[in-house]
């Protein structure tokens, strides 16, 4: 059991990382990473949704007929997203406003549907929950590292606090759309290089 847990986390974080190996869930990766604060909230929301939807789907896996399972999974995921949306609106109104439609778009984030299909539908609840957490964390650290670079170069701040000195000229490109594309491409390049080296392919 302990070895399994270890393997689940290693896969979720590196070998099978949802963002840079499976190229899933890119929409939100790009859209919310312009400031670290937004990213942190988004990541927390996704982690909650993926872990608990995995858990629920796994509990119900014998009750869901396989013909309608996509629909059932979609509805379970949507219910958890609604919880996240309502909580954000109640306690973090500003951020919820800035994230706009992207909170709702967690539903179509392929990571969650992907984990439900690939793992939760055929495994017991506890490992499914852990699998969800591992994938969520794999998503989290990629997003946070991209967000740190983008906010630092684009606004000269981190978490809204000024880091760069007075003379720093904001690199506006970084907070615009193209900056996100370039950063993610670079990240994929670096991480693939590391993974390939481990496997001894490059």
């Amino acid at each position: 059991m302990k070895g399994d847990t270890h393997k689940l986390f290693r896969d979720g974080l590196f070998k099978n990382n949802p963002v840079f190996i499976q190229i899933l869930g890119i929409c939100s990766t790009l859209a919310v990473t312009n400031t670290v604060k937004n990213t942190a909230v988004m990541v927390a929301g996704l982690l909650f949704v993926v872990a608990f939807s995995n858990l629920t789907i796994s509990f119900l896996r014998k009750a869901i007929p396989s013909r309608v399972r996509m629909m059932a999974e979609g509805l379970i995921i949507a219910s958890f997203v609604i919880i996240v949306d309502i909580v954000l609106k109640a306690y973090l109104w500003d951020i919820s406003k800035q994230l706009g439609p992207y909170v709702g778009l967690i539903i179509t984030n392929c990571i969650i549907m992907g984990r439900a299909e690939a793992f939760a539908i055929s495994n017991p609840p506890w490992p499914s929950f852990l699998d969800g957490v591992a994938s969520g964390l794999g998503y989290a650290y990629v997003l946070l590292s991209i967000a740190i670079v983008r906010e630092l170069l684009g606004y000269g701040t981190l978490w809204g606090i000024r880091i760069m000195g007075e003379g720093w000229v904001n690199w506006t490109m970084m907070v615009m759309a193209s900056g996100a594309f370039f950063m993610l491409a670079l990240f994929i390049w670096i991480m693939k290089g590391v993974v390939f080296r481990e496997r001894g392919e490059a």
Binding site: I23, A177, S178, G179, A180, F181, F182, L184, A185, I188, W189, I190, K192, G193, F196, A202
Partner: peptide, 16 residues
Amino acid sequence: PKGLEGAGITLIIAGI
């Protein structure tokens, strides 16, 4: 470059 094949290069083109 090997690491950029597929998704990587597509993202860079999308950025441009």
